[in-house]
Design a protein around this nucleic acid. Structure first.
Length: 311
DNA sequence: CGTGCCCCCTGTCAGC
DNA sequence: TGCTGACAGGGGGCAC
């Protein structure tokens, strides 16, 4: 489910509860969720403290700090000339263990990151737990995923930068301009809906918001990217940003699996203009919305509001 | 390198 | 009621 607005909602919901928490133990129940060997995955996370909770495209990013130095059992009297810290500050990190690591969580179609064992929690327990992160305060962060299309990986800072570089710009960042979009569109012949889904081009857009943005911009999803004139490219830029912002305001779109961190549903479903509305009247002109399948996925289009451009 | 197709996996729903 | 096929928010691998 999770596209950018859903990932953003999850991050905002979890952040206040996770910052500063320490991972005491990690249980891998479904190792096919990992690329790494389970024992390596676990050892990279054990004892670490969650310092940041963020998002990159559709991915959730937990930045984990070095283990805090364990206080010595008996306070050793500092010897003269002892440099405070060099060993202690590194904590348990030794050769090959970086100070900071990033846990990258791709939720696939049905992944959820849930905080369980919380005081007074009445939500049903995770139905398909895949990875359990046991925190030192007895709470448990659970990665739950019915279809197991999700992936979790731990990257050191250099690997993280390299991975992040393979993703396109964040569509909501101020640095992502209409001009950038127009120039990038001009370089490809692929249908614009497929173009928008490619994470290397823009990070975070999935099938729902690609279709919704194209409706708002008045563009047929099948138009080759490079045939979109600059004027329409600017409309698409504005449409993308507005639909993503509105969806975040609505806490995302719950079609089926997606839930906000507190177990609620995102309310953007009712705001959708074309996605999933095959044969229903266009909200703007009343014409029948049509479903077109290409690139192996459904696209939705109002035939009058989204005319084919030139040919 | 870019593009299109298949597959990963489970659940749900429409149609017979 | 039960079976079968289509389809679902994603993305990696492979052939062309």
């Amino acid at each position: 489910v999770p596209e950018l607005p859903e990932a953003e909602t999850i991050v905002r919901g979890l952040r206040p509860f996770l910052l500063g928490a320490r991972i005491a133990r990690v249980e891998v129940l479904r190792s096919d969720l990992l690329d790494a060997r389970p024992e390596d995955f676990v050892s990279l996370l054990m004892g670490r403290v969650i310092q940041e909770v963020d998002r990159r495209g559709k991915n959730l990013i937990l930045t984990l700090g070095t283990v805090e130095p364990t206080p010595p059992a008996k306070p050793a009297s500092p010897r003269p000339g002892f440099k405070a810290g060099s060993a202690a500050v590194e904590g348990r990190s030794g050769p090959g263990i970086p100070d900071r690591t990033h846990l990258v969580v791709n939720l696939g179609m049905s992944g959820r990151l849930l905080l369980a064992q919380v005081e007074g929690d009445t939500r049903p327990p995770p139905s398909h737990p895949g990875i359990r992160f046991l925190l030192t305060d007895a709470r448990v962060l659970v990665y739950d995923d019915v279809r197991r299309f999700g992936r979790l990986r731990v990257l050191d800072p250099a690997q993280y930068r390299e991975w992040s570089r393979t993703l396109g710009p964040e569509p909501l960042s101020p640095g992502f301009t209409a001009r950038d979009l127009c120039e990038a569109l001009a370089a490809s012949t692929t249908p614009v809906r497929s173009w928008l889904l490619d994470q290397r081009r823009i990070a975070g857009v999935g099938n729902i918001y690609a279709n919704e943005a194209l409706f708002r911009a008045g563009l047929d999803p099948r138009i080759p990217a490079r045939r979109i004139p600059p004027e329409a490219g600017r409309r698409l830029h504005r449409a993308l940003r507005s639909v993503l912002r509105e969806a975040i305001g609505n806490q995302g779109t719950t079609l089926r699996d997606y839930r906000t961190p507190d177990g609620g549903e995102g309310s953007h479903l009712q705001a959708l203009r074309v996605y999933g509305r095959e044969a229903l009247p266009c909200r703007s002109c009343g014409a029948r919305v049509e479903r077109i399948v290409f690139g192996g996925r459904s696209a939705f289009r109002c035939p009058t509001c989204q005319p084919w451009i030139g040919s």
